[in-house]
Amino acid sequence: MLAQQIINGLTLGGVYAIIALGYTMVYGILELINFAHGEIYMLGAYAGIIFFGLFTAIGLTSYSLPLSIVLTLILSIIFCSSYGFTIEKIAYKPLRKAPRLSPLISAIGVSIFLQNYVMLTQGATDRVFPYLFGAAGFDFIGARVTYLQSFIIAISALLMLSLHFFVARTMIGKAMRAVAQDRVMASLVGINIDTVISTTFVIGSGLAAVAGMMVAMYYGLVNYSIGYIAGIKAFTAAVLGGIGSIPGAMFGGIVLGLVEAMGAAYISSEYKDAYAFVILIIILLIKPAGLFGKSTEDRYK
């Protein structure tokens, strides 16, 4: 029972962690709670269904299932990244110098827009992702692990590791860290801030696309409103690990996934969605500036 919940929690946690990375990267650079990020994840789930459906229609799925999954994944990533890129250009870039709550309200607007945009174009009812992997799986220390679960956990771990190396090793990754630390200095040493911000949105949205598609495969059902709750949970995960910190987001996502699985199993599944909020509120009350809070004397001059 416990081992089973841990596996379920890890699966869920991996997905939260991947979405949380998007929040944490954007917050690290823009200090913006990108409220629309959850919707990108929702778009990713829909894109998965749409592109996979397309491949089924042209017969690619029956020719090679792995190939069509990989192609679907790639197309969804490109698609969601384009959305992330466009949203930043339209809704956030003009507000870079505005008071900090303005972009947050703009983000809420984007989120509402995207939800209704998908509802109007794709319908208000649930969409179904074909049941691909079945319940097939293996037993592992007394828990049943489906192949899909192990696939999700593996992909999540792989993405987290690649992002970690991307930020630590590559030129653009280093530029991202520089901008996060001091935007003015970064621009003085010749880093193009706009490129860095766009890259951040593109990467974050690409990750969300993967998360969306994995969840669509896991639950089989997708709805235009899934992004809101998932977004809040992933944001909680980001805060839990210390917002702005990439390893923190991974840690937070996994912890949140475990807490939710345990809570649903041992406390009450009706309040499943409330655990994230309660955790979020408790953390922020203990550490009012978030777990990584900054405080500088300059504020008082």
Binding site: I33, I232, E270, Y271, F277, L284, L285
Partner: peptide, 27 residues
């Protein structure tokens, strides 16, 4: 408790409060 928070965190905590109240009413 919430007023010790900075602006954007306060916004998110109030949002969480709203959701918790709705979930309680629902359940």
């Amino acid at each position: 408790p919430a007023l010790r928070l900075r602006g954007d965190y306060l916004a998110i905590v109030t949002l969480g409060f709203g959701e918790i109240v709705r979930l309680v009413l629902n359940n």
